[in-house]
Simulated assay, not measured.
Amino acid sequence: MTVQVDNHRMRTSESSMECAGKGRGTRCIGPARRRCARCGAVAYCSVSHQISHWKDHKEECERLEQQMKRVDELNDFPFTFSEEATLRISEKEGSRCSFLNTRGIHGVGMWKCECTCGASSASLDYARFESNSWDLPNSLCPCRGSSYRLSKELRNWQEYYEWRCIPLHSPIALLLHWPLTIYYAIQVAGLSSLTSEISKLCIHYLGPEKELLQLAVFGELQALFPGVQVHIDLIGPAIPEHRDGEKKDIWNYAHCIESDCDCKSESKNISRSMDTGTTSGVMLRFHRGFYHDRFRDIIKDSLPHLVIAPNAGIAAFSSWLPTLVSLLYS
């Protein structure tokens, strides 16, 4: 099952799209700020690139126009960004920087890429800046396992916050939308019942970017899928060359800032299924490059239950086309 999600709703005004005419003989002259007047789904750096791309774009412009009319509906995807946790931003009463600054997490650890003044994901040395801490007190973050197992599927952020006993003003949704999007995609794909029957869940995660600085948040999948070993292959050009082929095991939850919290004890922090006693865990494996180039090698170990692309922006990134073709015909 393949799911494509665009998790950039809160960032559309903060970052430019890739020029849809990129790589057509001449270099881009700047940011892609010139959108197609009809569909608004693709952008260009110049008039010349827009003209050169038209012969390809005209075939899909009408379809994209219809999709863009549903943008408000698409923005209601339940586990992208929490309105409760970002209320001041959504109502334009403050900036992302001020939101983070008032909570003491501006430019810190996993939050480093969460505003426009922070380091860009492309410029980061992930080995140096990767963090396993929320930089928040334990009352505001899920630094330990859940006190009880879910009895029904989560439908929105409010239900998640209540389950994890965290107040709605906590900013954790800004980072947890990565694992919660996986959780929701499992539901959409009709795989929820499967997770109670298998011991290993295999996911191909395409196009990771700033998630590479926030890997510790994927530890929350232990609480969402108790008793299941979650194996995630992260594939994309943003993977640093020195991490290509690397494996990373996550047995703990991201830590809080309180020194006396038992989340610092690995023996107490390992997640176990309350029914079977089996240990949950998350294994990440990194692959540098495009999915269509690496697919054959990756599936030698096992086929995925789910292929997901949280940062896809497929309509505006021509580099995704070969990947789509490989998914359709594989």
Score class of each variant (00 low, 15 high):
191 L>T: 09
181 T>R: 08
112 K>N: 01
128 R>T: 12
170 S>T: 14
171 P>D: 00
138 N>T: 12
123 S>R: 03
104 G>F: 07
117 C>F: 09
196 S>P: 03
131 S>H: 04
117 C>T: 15
134 W>Y: 15
192 S>P: 00
164 R>P: 06
179 P>N: 05
128 R>M: 03
109 G>R: 08
135 D>G: 04
189 A>C: 14
131 S>R: 03
189 A>D: 06
170 S>Y: 07
191 L>M: 02
129 F>W: 12
176 L>K: 03
115 C>G: 08
144 R>F: 11
182 I>W: 08
161 Y>D: 02
183 Y>F: 13
125 D>K: 12
126 Y>S: 05
158 Q>T: 15
151 S>K: 15
127 A>F: 03
150 L>K: 05
166 I>D: 07
143 C>H: 03
186 I>W: 10
181 T>D: 04
185 A>Q: 10
127 A>M: 00
135 D>Y: 14
196 S>C: 13
171 P>N: 04
171 P>K: 06
180 L>W: 14
189 A>F: 09
158 Q>G: 09
113 C>P: 06
147 S>T: 14
121 S>I: 00
148 Y>D: 14
118 G>Q: 05
111 W>R: 02
151 S>M: 14
130 E>Q: 14
137 P>K: 06
173 A>D: 09
186 I>P: 06
102 T>R: 10
110 M>Y: 11
186 I>L: 10
121 S>T: 04
137 P>Y: 10
102 T>S: 04
122 A>T: 07
107 G>T: 12
143 C>N: 05
177 H>F: 12
171 P>S: 08
168 L>N: 13
194 L>D: 08
164 R>T: 14
129 F>S: 10
173 A>I: 15
177 H>D: 01
127 A>E: 10
154 L>P: 15
192 S>N: 01
